[in-house]
Design a binder for these strands. Structure first.
Ligand code: SF4
Ligand code: SF4
Lengths: 154, 154
DNA sequence: TTAATAACAGACCATTTTGGTCTGCGATTA
DNA sequence: TAATCGCAGACCAAAATGGTCTGTTATTAA
């Protein structure tokens, strides 16, 4: 059903929060947790993941916490999703762990689906964390024309 | 993790199969099931769904079966996904059944996420079943220009 | 030196979603 | 009027996800 997981949501919220801090400011889990009402334990997992994947820098000490490791413009949304969920993929058959889809031999829709998948990847790759955060609700996407095409208020 | 469900896969396979038939030719579940090794019962569900949503025409009789109700160029991939999975959505909070996401009050990522969602929707809406099926691995969707808006080749 | 603070690690369980099965009914036509 | 097909929905099993618990390790300030 093409839904982002809650953990990715948490990750993006946390990253958003961190981006709003002053340069080099470290923030601990509790602060983020309180800012958004996210259970600390699971948030911890999420941040650990981001740290392990090189998106966050952890400061492993009292008065420590996390800070962005790279400038926000160098982190894509796809990076974040990949860090949390593992590889993204529209298809059940793609990339490596091909769990032997029963249909794979007779399948004539794989390549078109891969093209769609590619487009989505590209879209996610193309959007940096910085762009993501500083987007204005009104301007932003409308210019891109994306929203208007989706349907009119009925 | 952004994965299409197996049922959508089945639906697309079946639609692909049906598109390859002669005009007005009806095909029953068994034939599709055999063509792709899909369990008949679940395929039945999927086709029923497509029929109820106006994508397929059912012929409720011996020697009956299914046929496309509309020309393939008038059916989008999004239509198919919607028919099978219900509403598509990247977000947990969007469209109607807002299951009171705990974060919704303090959430500062909703609108950017909605923009991404919009782009994906558009992309899926923009691709017709016809285009989907007849796509050459290399050419294909580029002509519609949808891709270009999503970012430039770097 | 040591106690407090914070991240790290992983097992673990509960809930939801998904894939798939079963059982029976309804429409059409030869 | 019986065979062939779709229709409908309850039902179950497996997987994915969300969330909890228990404990360990690194750093620093008292
Ligand atoms: S059906 Fe075709 S596309 Fe879908 S998973 Fe199996 S092989 Fe990949
Ligand atoms: S976090 Fe924000 S975006 Fe994600 S679901 Fe809750 S409200 Fe919607």
């Amino acid at each position: 059903m093409l839904k982002l997981t809650k953990k990715v949501d948490y990750a993006l919220l946390a990253l958003s929060f961190l981006s709003q801090q002053e340069e080099g400011q470290v923030v601990n889990i509790r602060e983020v947790s309180e800012a958004y009402q996210i259970p600390t334990e699971i948030l911890a997992k999420v941040l650990q993941r981001l740290s392990k994947k090189g998106i966050l820098q952890s400061h492993h000490a009292p008065k420590g916490g996390y800070s962005l490791k790279k400038p926000a413009r160098n982190v894509s949304i796809l990076d974040v999703i990949n860090a949390i969920d593992g590889s993204v993929g529209i298809l059940s058959c793609s990339d490596g762990h091909e769990k032997t889809c029963q249909q794979i031999d007779n399948c004539d829709i794989r390549s078109p689906l891969e093209r769609i998948q590619g487009k989505i990847m590209w879209l996610l790759e193309d959007m940096s964390l910085e762009e993501f955060i500083h987007s204005e609700p009104t301007t932003g996407g409308v210019l891109h024309g994306s929203i208007n095409l989706l349907g009119q208020p009925r």
